[in-house]
């Protein structure tokens, strides 16, 4: 009996000790409405806290002539595949300084993966379907997440320590740097980071433009 009690107490103790820190982020717009697709970036002040990070492969699909997901955060050095789930071909490109590339017309999973080796925002487009637009955020930190429909995101398994946190959104009316907050993370309690950001009105190339028939660009 005593032996079991000691085992339970020990396991609880060690679990607590091994528990990593957590950040709960919330992003709202100027009207207090939840902002989805905002990227939350957590940068350790001590770079040793990110030493063992790796860059997993990821994918940005094309579904119903749209990039899915609309915003994809990745760690620098990651490769991304661009599978095409539509039954038509796409011609994916980017002019962004962080990564310039072009995938010739392809269907299915024929396109080779693309490595993103420079931090920054990469705007995706399709040369056939001009309305298609997507964003890849290439993060210099391995600790990041993207807000969901409720404007929330959770980043856990963070080593305790000092961090700066910031957010980015495609329609944000300010710079990323202006959103920087400093946070000290401990394993005891989750930290909370909140932002209220202004969003610029978006104007996208229309998918249907008034033609009676299909209109290819």
């Amino acid at each position: 009996m005593l032996k079991n009690f000691i085992a339970i107490v020990s396991s609880v103790f060690f679990c607590a000790a091994a528990q990593a820190a957590e950040i709960r982020a919330l992003v709202k717009d100027q009207k207090g409405k939840a902002v989805a697709d905002a990227v939350i970036l957590v940068v350790p002040v001590d770079p040793r806290n990110a030493l063992h990070a790796h860059a997993p492969a990821a994918a940005v699909d094309q579904v119903d002539k749209q990039f899915v997901p609309y915003v994809k955060p990745i760690f620098v050095g990651s490769t991304i595949r661009f599978p095409n789930s539509d039954n038509i071909r796409h011609q994916v490109y980017s002019f962004s300084p962080a990564k310039k590339f072009e995938l010739p017309l392809y269907s299915g999973t024929d396109a080779p993966p693309v490595m993103f080796d420079k931090p920054g925002v990469v705007v995706l487009g399709c040369n056939i379907h001009d309305w298609m637009i997507g964003y890849i955020y290439v993060s210099e930190t391995p600790f990041f997440a993207k807000t969901g429909p409720l404007g929330t995101a959770v980043i856990n398994d963070l080593p305790a320590g000092e961090y700066t946190v910031r957010t980015w959104h495609p329609n944000m009316d300010r710079t990323e740097e202006s959103t920087i907050q400093h946070i000290a993370l401990s394993a005891d309690t989750p930290s909370v980071a909140e932002w209220q950001i202004g969003l610029k009105p978006t104007i996208h190339v229309p998918r249907v433009s008034g033609a009676a028939s299909a209109d290819y660009p």
Binding site: I88, R89, P104, L105, N127, I128, A212, S213, A214, Y216
Partner: peptide
Amino acid sequence: TLSAFDLLPVGRSLSLVAG
């Protein structure tokens, strides 16, 4: 009106549409 159009890429920036 009901229309059906098909895109046939001819080159990198050239396309044929038949419909």
